[in-house]
Simulated scan of single mutants.
Amino acid sequence: MNILVDDNREVHPYLENMKSIAKGIYVFLGEDSEVVIHDLSDPTSSIIFLAGELTDRKLGGPITDLGLEILRRAANGANPEDILNYRNQTEDGRTFKSSTLFIKDDMGEVIGCLCINYNVTKLFLVENIIGNFCKMKEDSNENSDQQQMQYEIFANDIDDVLSKMIEAAINQVEKPVPFMKKQDKLKVIEFLEQKGVFAIKRSVDRVANELSVSRYTVYNYLKEI
């Protein structure tokens, strides 16, 4: 079992106490799981505990895009609630059952989070085999609606998280950057702001470069939205 613990970094006592709980969860769930503790005092290097190898991350890795979005909401006064049992799809096609639980201090401020991923890909394959075998003629009228999947960016480098979030923002406009008008770029900026991107250092410069505008234009767009 691969369990990595950052014992050199000074963290809040509540986060320190959570390490033994995280280890117990991982040992209980086994090698198809991954348990991570994030110290949100530094989103760019937040991983202080990592058990498992599902996402190939390392100690000192950054928070995910989902974590950034939650931080942004908390900064605006929202009280984030735990996100339990959501479906997560990786770029290589694996499916995780995931949960994110927030760790708060005595004042109710979010200081970290405990994230649990379980690889259910093989279980889905077995489920499909059993489902196909048991399917009867009268079962043909199935509900075609699919559950919406959560896509979360797992990375060892905050620049990688930033790049993929900018790419997602541009893709949702469905127009190449050279053909974008001001309103299109405002949509990109609004998408990124809602995702908490601008909490990352130097993100304004990166976004400005991708949109072929000045950093001052990005600041003006932020004021406008």
Rank of each mutant, 00 (worst) to 15 (best):
I103S: 05
E69P: 02
G30D: 03
N132V: 05
F49I: 08
R73L: 03
L40C: 00
V173R: 06
F198Y: 02
E193T: 15
E193G: 04
L50D: 01
E81P: 06
E190I: 01
Y151A: 11
D159K: 09
D184E: 06
D65E: 00
Q147P: 08
K175R: 06
L40I: 02
I3R: 00
E31A: 10
Y26E: 01
N156H: 08
N143K: 11
G30I: 07
I189H: 12
K97W: 01
Q146L: 14
E34Y: 01
I200P: 05
F179R: 02
L54M: 07
Y26I: 06
Q147E: 12
M136I: 10
S163E: 15
D160F: 14
C134K: 12
N17T: 05
T95L: 10
N209A: 15
K23F: 07
K97P: 02
G67W: 08
Q148M: 02
N88I: 05
K23L: 13
N220H: 04
M107D: 15
Y86V: 13
D82E: 05
K19V: 11
R57W: 00
N17I: 02
Y14L: 13
E53V: 02
V120G: 08
D106F: 01
T44D: 13
S144I: 07
C115K: 09
K137L: 10
T217Y: 01
F198E: 07
